[in-house]
């Protein structure tokens, strides 16, 4: 698997939130790196689906969930930047 760039992962996340924009009543503005995921209009359970989709998109198996568990991170505490950085980090590990 190739390296994952921050911009690429940001693009994927952006596309997800654009698709959901009407349902979430969000304004579809920029995703700020320090925005908490939970503040973007989803139910907390949907964040689990978000992670599943990112894992599938990048062929990460369940590495993203595992990483969060190992680091004792809760989805509701994570920011846009946190999740993107986690994906980028896993990408570089897998291709190293």
């Amino acid at each position: 698997m190739a390296n994952i760039s921050y911009d690429d992962a940001y693009g994927v996340l952006k596309e997800i939130f654009e698709d959901l924009e009407d349902d979430l009543d969000s304004d579809g503005g920029e995703l700020a790196a320090d925005s908490k995921l939970i503040d973007l209009g989803m139910e907390s359970i949907s964040l689990v689906y978000l992670v599943s989709e990112l894992q599938q998109h990048y062929g990460l198996g369940d590495a993203l969930f595992r990483k969060m568990r190992e680091e004792d991170k809760l989805l509701v505490d994570m920011s846009v930047g946190d999740i993107i950085n986690s994906v980028v980090e896993l990408g570089s590990k897998a291709s190293a």
Binding site: I16, D19, D22, D23, M42, E43, I45, S46, Y49, Q56
Partner: peptide
Amino acid sequence: PAKPINGVVIPGYVPWSYLGR
């Protein structure tokens, strides 16, 4: 997440705030 097929997949048990995606 939907496993891509020729056709349409709308999975069940997806929370409303993620269903569109």
